[in-house]
Design a binder for these strands. Structure first.
Length: 271
DNA sequence: CCCGTCTGAATTCAAGTCAG
DNA sequence: CTGACTTGAATTCAGACGGG
């Protein structure tokens, strides 16, 4: 039993070691800590291509905890062994790999702010779930996510990625439609002054939809005939098989609606 | 190896807006 | 009037780098 010191009452969380460490143990432990420090500093260096440094869309969308733990294992073998031992990783489960990945991410983020990959992912998860400012603040203090203001920056970066995709598609010769959807409204002030006027506000959502089937060869100079006079069957050139297949599809849709909307038919659902 | 400076990114702060 | 939110500017931080 370790002897209690006079001020032990003021240290409620005093660590009680079963065996008092010898001077050799301490110097050995100091050596391990120094090695861990060197390993982690190595990851933080700019020329080390750590996964944690990147925040590209591809990295974010293809992220896996296994890959990150593999990086830890390769770049920081001693740190990995220590953390794996603490987590009892030999009983390897998916949840433990994810936990180790998070721990590694938090440690590196606290050492170097540029290594915020895990925090980017968590910030987006919080954004998707509609977390409020307080949630961001509390998790940010734990090193789990960024401050809330960063979510806009990350979303902008993700948006830029889609612009790159558009450039790729256009270069490949694909055509697209530019879709605009707008909403207009008036914002009226309580007291109108020269510097406080009513506002007419217009918000527009935009998107590009690429054509799966090219229609650039079709004539679009003028309508070929009016819709009222058009024979749809002749236009789409339905053969007997197509017409029969279409009839079957309509029957299935009608049956589904009947089962859903009329309770008396619900017993037919399982048929 | 130490120290000062640079750099890039995150965080904090302050001002303004808005809804309840 | 208050609290939550947004936004841009200022500040902070830690590693990189170069000179002595």
């Amino acid at each position: 039993m370790p002897q209690s010191t006079p001020d032990s009452a003021s240290q409620p969380f005093q660590i009680i070691l079963p065996v008092q460490p010898t001077r050799t143990d301490e110097s050995f432990f100091k050596g391990i800590l120094e090695k861990i420090n060197v390993e982690l500093r190595g990851v933080a260096r700019g020329d080390t291509n750590s996964m944690l440094r990147s925040r590209s869309f591809d990295r974010l969308s293809n992220f896996s905890d296994e890959q990150l733990v593999e990086e830890l294992k390769t770049m920081c073998p001693i740190t990995y062994k220590l953390l794996a031992c603490m987590l009892e990783l030999e009983n390897c489960s998916e949840k433990k790999i994810a936990a180790l990945s998070l721990i590694y991410g938090v440690i590196m983020f606290k050492r170097c702010k540029e290594l915020g990959f895990i925090q980017s992912i968590n910030t987006i998860i919080l954004s998707d779930s509609g977390a409020n400012t307080e949630v961001y603040e509390r998790f940010n203090k734990l090193g789990i996510c960024f401050e809330k203001t960063m979510k806009y920056k990350i979303q902008d970066e993700i948006g830029t990625h889609f612009l790159d995709k558009v450039v790729e598609q256009v270069k490949a010769g694909n055509t697209f439609s530019f879709v605009l959807d707008n909403i207009d409204w008036e914002v009226k002030v309580h007291e109108m002054r020269s510097d406080n006027q009513n506002q007419s506000v217009h918000a527009v959502a935009t998107s590009l939809v690429f054509d799966r089937v090219s229609c650039s060869h079709l004539d679009d100079t003028e309508p070929q005939r009016s819709l009222a006079e058009t024979d749809i069957k002749q236009l789409v050139e339905l053969n007997v098989n197509d017409a029969e297949q279409q009839r079957q599809s309509y029957k299935m849709i009608a049956a589904k609606i009947l089962c859903e909307q009329i309770p008396a038919f619900s017993f037919l659902k399982t048929l």
